[in-house]
Amino acid sequence: MAYILDDYAILSPLRTKNNWLKLSIVAFGVLIGVSSPSPITPFLIAVCMSFATIFLAKIPAKFYFKILSVPAGFVLVSVIIIAFFFGGGTYLFSFDVFGYTLGVSSSGLSMALLVLARTLGGMSCLFFLSLTTPMVELFSVLKATKFPDSFIEIAMMMYRYIFVFLDVAMGIRNAQTMRLGYKDFRTSFRSMVMLGTNLFIRSWEQGEKLYLSMNSRCYDGKLIVFDEKRPVKASEFLLTSLYFSFIIIMFYYTRGIFVV
């Protein structure tokens, strides 16, 4: 876990926008992206969402591309494999390795491009959501749905405990480093084992303390979150509908177009 996107989300100017509007924009992008037969529409979605994230949500472009490059790198490798191994028919180009013929056929290549575009489109939608909406906001969305209280309670506690885990891990790691616990490979290994096993027990203890202190302040399993009313403004509604209709029109007209 190199970064927590929540930090950026809390500072983003789009944080104060209506949660349901943001959620519907993301759901729309994800669903259209995955059902598009042509790679052009998901690619357009990726461009639009990246634009919104950088210019409307004011996320530094350098940071945005850095975090996008991690999953994109994974996907690129996968896509190259798909291009080589999937899709039959005649090869566009091929070469021989140890007696095997490796080649890329046009159906393999178009499938690879489609998967690449869909994944990029989906990723940019998800990043838009995670960089503009802190988890706290999503809890009020969750409250508005009909999930049982115990589910929401566990979800909230888990969210808190992830940070307890990180805190405890950081503390132990600092203490070990101060005592030269990572001076060479052997000691590092020993320290890692100690950290790993103690982490769970320590976090659990911390969690019990937290729970106890909440209980003694009359906690009964229901955390009340303040759900601010944020009506959708006319300008936001207009922009969103423009975006939706643009994507739907593009979806309709590019459905038969393939790059290869």
Partner: peptide
């Protein structure tokens, strides 16, 4: 509902999966 005292353990086990 039956045993509220397991809530911290549930949440820690969940956070363990996350980490």
């Amino acid at each position: 509902n039956e045993r509220r005292e397991v809530v911290p353990l549930l949440a820690v086990a969940g956070a363990f999966i996350f980490v």
